[in-house]
Structures are given as structure tokens and as C-alpha cells.
């Protein structure tokens, strides 16, 4: 495999990174109102959020991208492969992150809510200053491992023509007939990408732990 071949593969790297971080960012943000709806006192809203989460998580990511790109994109409004992939993966990330947040929320001792209530901190202050900072710390390891999972999942975007790592690998393997070498390099790049995430998550966790625990 020549150096030029490696560069062809590397051209997919920014797309994989952009898709991963973009979808994760969308997911992390959209998950907040989704969780709020999921935990709402208002039953219809709660049911809506619950079914949305179930449906989004229940359908394979590949199918979501097909629905958005070929279904909506071709029939109703033109949409670029990248935006379609970002939308689909962002939606999936939102549903998954909402569940991760929810688990973290449940892990916060009810005494924290009670202490905040007794101090007459309003609901918003309680969540913003007391509950969310603690829940985010709990959510961090799961969120990081989900981020790594999401990065690998972005490979499905190759099926609708986003020129990310897997797409470039596939193209190159068809040009060079060196599938094994090409995909080994692509695989290695995914591993390399996951390393800083794992490392960051561990050090952030250790830092927060050292601040809080005895």
C-alpha cells in the first residue's frame, strides 16, 4: 500500500470525527428536553417521550439513515448525505443519551432533593446546581463509552455516501484489491480515535472523584 493510498483513507478521518462529535453534541443537548419530557408529570408528554425513545432505539441506525436520506431526502426535501447522517445519528444519540442521563439521575440519593427542598431552592436551581452536576459525573463513564460506540456506528454513513473512513476504505479496496491491508489500516484508525476518548474519560472521572470523595 502506497503513501498515497494512506492519504486516501485519511481523507475520511475528518468526516468520521465531524459526524461523531456532531451527533454526540446534538444528542447530548437534545437529550435534556427529551429527558425532561420523559420525567414530566404530564402523562401525554411522558408517553410521547417514552415511545419516541423506544422507537428511535428500536430501529437499526442503518434503517434510520435510509429513511432520512432516501425516504425524506429524495421525496420531500433535498438533503446532503452528511446532514442526513448527522440528523439520524444525532437523533439516535439523543435517545441513548436521554437513557444515560436518566440512569444517572436515578442514582442521585433522594436526600439531595430533600435537602434542596428544605432549603427552598426552587426546582430549577435544585436541578441546575445540586442534581445535574452530580448526575453528569455519574453519566460520564457511560457517556464516554457511548461516544466510542457512536464513533464506530458512524461507519453506516458510508452506505448513503458520506466519505468517512469506512467509505474511503471501501473505495480504496475496490481500486487496489488490497482489502485486508486497507481495512486493517481503517480499523487501526478507529482504534486510535477511541484512545483519547477513553483516556479523557478516565482522567476526568478520576479528577471528579478526587474532588468529591474522601
Amino acid at each position: 500500500m502506497s503513501q498515497a493510498d494512506i492519504f486516501v483513507i485519511l481523507r475520511g478521518l475528518p468526516w468520521t470525527v465531524a459526524l461523531t462529535l456532531g451527533a454526540f453534541l446534538i444528542g447530548s443537548i437534545v437529550a435534556v428536553p427529551l429527558l425532561a419530557a420523559r420525567e414530566s408529570q404530564f402523562l401525554p408528554l411522558r408517553l410521547f417521550a417514552m415511545s419516541l425513545i423506544q422507537v428511535v432505539r428500536g430501529i437499526p441506525p442503518l434503517l434510520w439513515l435510509f429513511i432520512i436520506f432516501f425516504g425524506l431526502g429524495m421525496s420531500y426535501f433535498p438533503i446532503s448525505p452528511f446532514v442526513a447522517a448527522l440528523t439520524g445519528l444525532g437523533l439516535i444519540a439523543a435517545a441513548n443519551m436521554a437513557e444515560i442521563y436518566r440512569g444517572a439521575l436515578k442514582s442521585i440519593h433522594h436526600g439531595q432533593w430533600e435537602a434542596a427542598n428544605a432549603l427552598d431552592l426552587g426546582r430549577l436551581s435544585t436541578v441546575a446546581f445540586i442534581i445535574a452536576p452530580q448526575a453528569l459525573r455519574v453519566a460520564l463513564p457511560s457517556a464516554a463509552s457511548y461516544l466510542i460506540g457512536l464513533m464506530k456506528e458512524t461507519a453506516v454513513a458510508s452506505t448513503i455516501g458520506v466519505a468517512e473512513l469506512a467509505f474511503q476504505g471501501n473505495r480504496l479496496s475496490q481500486l487496489t484489491f488490497q482489502g485486508l491491508e486497507v481495512f486493517a489500516v481503517v480499523g487501526l484508525l478507529y482504534v486510535v480515535l477511541s484512545l483519547p476518548v477513553a483516556w479523557l474519560s478516565r482522567s476526568a472521572d478520576a479528577y471528579l472523584r478526587s474532588k468529591v470523595a474522601a
Binding site: E114, L119, L121, S125
Partner: peptide
Amino acid sequence: RRRVGMVFQSFNLFPHMTVLRNVSIAQERV
């Protein structure tokens, strides 16, 4: 609730805040 202070069996301090912040936050927010 503002007229009543409460102390719990299990303390229920806010573990992510400094001791000072534990005692000052409600004064600011409330």
C-alpha cells in the same frame, strides 16, 4: 420552608460543592 431549617439523619450535604458553598448557595439562590 424559609422559616424552618432542617437537619437530616444522613446529613445530605452536597458532595460536589465545597463546605463553604454548601452553606452559601441557598443564601444566594433563595
